[in-house]
Every structure is written in C-alpha cells, then in structure tokens.
Design a protein around this nucleic acid. Sequence first.
RNA 1: AGACCCGUGAUGUAACGGUUAGCAUACAAGAUUUUGAUUCUUGUUGUAAAGGUUCAAAUCCUUUCGGGUUUUCCA
Length: 561
Amino acid sequence: MNDTERPLNFIEHIIEEDLKNGFSNEALRFRFPPEPNGYLHIGHASSICLNFGLGLRYNAPVNLRFDDTNPAKEEQEFVDAIKRDVEWLGYKWDTERYASDYFQQLYDWAVALIKAGKAYVDSQTSEEMANQKGTPTEPGTESPYRNRSVEENLSLFEAMKAGDFEEGQHVLRAKIDMTSSNMLMRDPIMYRVLHKAHHRTNTDWCIYPMYDWTHGESDYIEQVSHSLCTLEFAMHRELYDWFLDQVVDQNKIRPKQREFARRNLSHTVVSKRKLAKLVAEGVVTGWDDPRMPTISGLRRRGYSPESIRNFADTIGIAKRDNLIDVSLLEFQVRDHLNKIAPRVMGVLDPLKVVITNYPEDKEEWITAENNPGDEGAGNREVPFSRELYIEKADFREAANKKFFRLKLGHEVRLKNGYIIKAESCTKDTDGNITEVQCTYDPKSKSGSGTEESLRKVKGTLHWVSIKHAITAEVRLYDRLFTDESPDTHKDKDFMDFINPDSLEVITGYLEPSLKTAKIGDQVQFQRMGYFCVDTDTTPEKLIFNRTVGLRDSWAKIEQKN
RNA sequence: AGACCCGUGAUGUAACGGUUAGCAUACAAGAUUUUGAUUCUUGUUGUAAAGGUUCAAAUCCUUUCGGGUUUUCCA
C-alpha cells in the first residue's frame, strides 16, 4: 500500500492525534462488525476498506465480528457469504469473532449492573414504555417498575434467563435518565426475551442483549481501540460510553467510537428491504444479479476487488452527506481492467461483409496482440476469411468525414488484418442493409511491414470470420434505476424509477479463441467494452456479462449532431 | 421543536490560521494511436450567506440559510 503520501482522512487524523498523545501503536486494533442478516453491499465495502485499510496502514489487527444478537433475522448462510465477500475483497481478518461468544460475559455484567442499582426489570408492555418515552422536546416519565428492589430485579432477570416468561413480558433496562435530551439515554432496553434458536448458541439463551449493550462491550472485550461506525450511531455514542463506564478497567484499552458518513452511490439502493423487494418481484434474478450493488453482484458483473478498493480509496471517508456518482466506480473498473484484460474481438450487432476479391476457400490465421499495453500478455491467432461480420453501426452508405468507419468508396482497417474498401451494399425490401461488398488490399496485412500495410487509414474496425465465429449469449447491463437517488423522493417510490432497459440479452459472434473461456474470465471486446464470463455458463452455452462499456467519445459526437 | 452532526467546482475528497485552494473523476481542446479505447499535454468551474477576531480565515467565533440524524423489545 503506497499510501504514505496520501493525505489523511479525519479518522486517521484522530488516530495520529492519539498516537501523538502517547497511545501505543501496538494497541491499535479495529474491527468490521456486520450483522449476518443479509448480503454485503458496496456501502459495506467502504467500511471494510476503511477498517482493514487502517489495519494495513498501522500494521494493526482487524477482527471480523458478527453482530449476531438477533436470532430472528440472522443465519449461518449470511455468515458464510460475508466471509467470502471480505476475502474476495482481498482482506485477512485477525480473528473471527461473534457477539454471541460474549453472551455469558454480557449477562454477568448485567447482573452486576442490577446489583449496583443501575438496571431494572420492567414489566410493562412495549406500548406503555413507548408512551413513557416522551418526545425530543418533552422528558419521559419513569416506569412504575423503575425502583424495584435489587433482589426482585435479580430474581426476575434470572427467571427471564431461565425461560419462565413469554416474549414481551419483561425486559431489562438500564437505569439512566428519563429526562435526557438524548432519547437513547431514557432507560434503554438491555435485554429482551426471545424464544428463538440462535444459529450458533441454539437454545442456550432465551434472552438476547440489544445492540447498544452489546456493541461497545464487545469492542472492549476484543480490546478494539477505534470502533468506527456510520453517522446514524452518533447519538448512540453517549450510551456506548455510559455502558463502557460500568465495566471498564482502567488498565485496559477503552474503545473509542467515531462516526463517518455512509457512502451513497448514485443510481442504486442498498437497503436490505429494498434489495429484497427487487429480488422478490423478479426485477433482478437474485442477490448476485450483476445489476445489484451487492458485493456478490459486483463480482458477478466483473468488477475486480482491486477496482473496488481503489474506488473506496479515491472517494475517501468524511462526515458530510454525499451521493457518489457511479461513474467514479466505473472509472475504476475500466482503469484496472484496461491493465489486465486480454483484448479479443466480438461482434454484437452483426452486418455481413463479403470480400469479393478474397478466394472463397481461403482462410488464414492472423497474429493478434492480447494486450498492446502489456508486453507479457503474448499473442493469439485469429482466423480471417472471405465472409466476415462487422458491427452494423460501423457501416454507412454515406457519411461526413467525422464518420471514420466504413462507407461506400472508402477504406478502413480491419483490426490486425487488411485494409478493405466498401464497393457496394445490398438491402432488403425494407431498405435495411443486409450485406456489404468490399475489396481488400492483399498487401496491406497488419504487421507485414509492406508499404501498403503502413498506410494510414483513419478507421479501424473489429470483426469476426463468420465461418469460424462462436456464438455466446451476451448480457448488456445498464444501471438499474433511471434516477440518481431513487429512494429519496417523498412523493415517489423507488420502484417507480426502475430502468426498463437495465438488461438487454443478445447473441454475440466471437472469435474462436473464446471457446475455452472459463467462468469469471475478464476480457475486453475491442471497441465495445469489458466483459466477463457469467456463472450461468455451461459447457454447451457460453454467457458473457458486460461489466462496463469503454469510454465512447464517438457517442458524444453523434449526440451533439 | 429540542439535541447532535454536516455545508469546498458537476461528483468525491484534501488543505487543520500563512504561497496563485491541491488531487481523482467529469467536461473541453490538442498530440499520439491498427481499439473514436489507452497514453500524454493544456485548459474550465469551488470555500452556502453575513458579520466578527487576526498582520493573515475554507480553517477560530456569532448569526442566518440549507441538509442530515434522533422518538424499533432491529442493527
């Protein structure tokens, strides 16, 4: 990581300040704490890159901690998916932890709190408690159970743990301040009864600790030095600190919670509920649909871990609201794929070209560079013959000189091959061009070194020999939503902004070298974009996803006119 | 409404009282190019507003304006 010269973000400033004030570099420790109740998305990726990036920068351990305190929502499946995604992003955690590992410790501490008169069992309904909570401007009122004796609280809490009560009958609350301007300090719930099997502790417990009571204490148990979370938790900090005050040992590290703004990516949604709806309603095929902002979706789409890390790096971390244009992400994939993706030729919207002066039975194999920017990428052979496909968009009967592709009476270079000249074309009854007749200059072969081959012709087209082409299903993806911020409109539902053209499935005609392409392979279809082999691919059927198109300044020129 | 947080070009971010406010993207122009890609060069746009403190303010203070968070037995 060559980030020695990169300016520091505000979190790093905080850490540098701590270091300067005598905090030991060896005591630095971070954590990434997902709840295993769904799939990770691009927003999580930022958090992962932040925490693990800090670990790398300061050579400090980073734990992967599952915040698994709600058995109603959490599953092992998600634990596995999260681990896979973090690994895929290229990070190694120091230890794998679970908040559920701390249930006993948390319970013991809760008992101590009761004994200290700082927690009590409340036996009201949730409605009653909500009514007593007050509002941001009005103080709350105290529960009638607030001053139960320690003995009564202890026996009730033990009975809660023993399973003597139904869900909702009792909760354990911290006794703080019902008049606090911070609603979270108005006697927050620490435990609730939940008769649900947990994916790890099974039925060992029927009371489960709440987030606030769990998170800071888990950080403390793991001796996390800097606990980073999103801005929504800023108000929780006061409670985080209050809970810590109850258990912290002066000789140990006291974790510090700091908050950063969640990264919002344009043209997408990331809330679990909304993504689930997209899946449930069949807008996408699943959580790993290449249009989804999930890590698994991005992976399937062909994004590389490196491009996502670079993205996280360039967008940085701060506290202000943001809406990051998805083009910043797209730039990073292009940038990375440009370096590593082998170049191949594939025609996606074919138009037949016949080279009339090329012998009918002749074929030749032409050497093509795999990556002009990478000497080590080597070469491959591409077949050339009399009948080829080019893109429909690459031929016009007539056009101005800004159009430097094929037009009648003019020449163009076939990439890696010959210079051809369009002589005539044929049309169907509707006037659509069905075939272009060309002649080629036999001495103009690429790399032959002849005077003819060195001739400058403005346009260069990709092509594929019809006889040798293999076909593949090609899935052209576009952004899922037409609005840059689909879920922020008060009067409209995010579903109203679904892009009806987010997926176009076509048949592509590809050079035969692609026959051996394997799932996950990433290539550049020259002049078209970056593509990867989809997981739906079978030995019988090859499927490509378009990761992202190339920059297209021609499209801009055309648009202007 | 209270409390808390936040306002730097089209987007993201940096500058932490001290050069012409930097970097990436975007956009524009030019060069190179057997990908209208890449690469290279150059350029364009910004400190929400008003007051103050100071020799000096994006940075400190005040006010206004704007945005966000906060009232789940979720995390």
